[in-house]
């Protein structure tokens, strides 16, 4: 199934469904790959340097459903044959596999812990942060960057953010974060320098929560941050 989807881009299509599938795989990339990848990377770099700030990703691409365009933009900017990618079951369709194979040529893995980049919708479909690779004490950079699709980056329950890149305190009110997110982040922060890094994406807006950012619930004022220093 998967194999035929990847191969269909280069082989002569034998049926109507194969035609539409190969078109979905080949089309929908950046219209100007070099410059748009640069714009997207600068947005992601600024977002990572300033956790909690919102960035805009370039919007000329159209990945096949159900992969959201913002996640597609991150994949086209950062993924290639050197980066094993894990797809949440909700995104793991032949069209998405074929699109990633054509545009990024990234290997797909079945274990979240083996991935360098993971793409998932926030919610029950996404494993806990601990399921991903947190690197080693010697090589903490060899960890997963989880790219999470959320409903919105504004209008949710406010979270307080502190840490490098933030002058005093930043607030993020993303809607649709997974259950127990604050506790998961505290657990992740306690692993430092190990830990997974997080990109939240809603539509074409993005926000980064690198492992250094300490996340606490703003409404209750209680800290779930005991694990961190």
């Amino acid at each position: 199934m998967t194999h035929s989807a990847q191969a269909s881009a280069s082989q002569a299509p034998s049926s109507q469904s194969a035609v539409s599938m190969s078109a979905a795989c080949v089309e929908g990339g950046f219209s100007d790959p070099v410059m748009e990848a640069q714009v997207a990377f600068r947005a992601l770099m600024d977002a990572t340097a300033r956790p909690g700030s919102l960035c805009d990703l370039p919007g000329s691409l159209a990945p096949p459903a159900p992969l959201p365009e913002g996640l597609g933009a991150v994949a086209l900017t950062l993924c290639d044959p050197d980066t094993p990618v894990w797809l949440a079951p909700a995104y793991d369709t032949p069209e998405v596999r074929g699109w990633l194979a054509f545009h990024c040529a990234c290997p797909l893995v079945t274990e979240p812990a083996e991935s360098v980049f993971a793409f998932a919708p926030a919610g029950a479909d996404c494993p806990p942060l601990t399921a991903f690779n947190s690197g080693t004490q010697e090589y903490p950079d060899r960890s997963t960057t989880l790219v999470l699709a959320v409903e919105a980056l504004e209008g949710g329950a406010p979270l307080n953010l502190e840490g490098p890149g933030i002058r005093s305190r930043e607030t993020l009110a993303a809607a649709g974060l997974p259950e127990g997110f604050v506790a998961q982040r505290a657990e992740n922060r306690a692993l430092f320098p190990r830990g997974s890094d997080l990109l939240l994406v809603a539509g074409l807006r993005g926000c980064a929560l690198p492992r250094t950012t300490r996340v606490t619930a703003a409404s209750t004022g209680t800290s779930t941050d005991e694990g961190a220093e």
Partner: peptide, 9 residues
């Protein structure tokens, strides 16, 4: 990718 990991650590 190295720059993003560098900023994160």
């Amino acid at each position: 990718r190295a720059i993003l990991k560098g900023i994160a650590i």
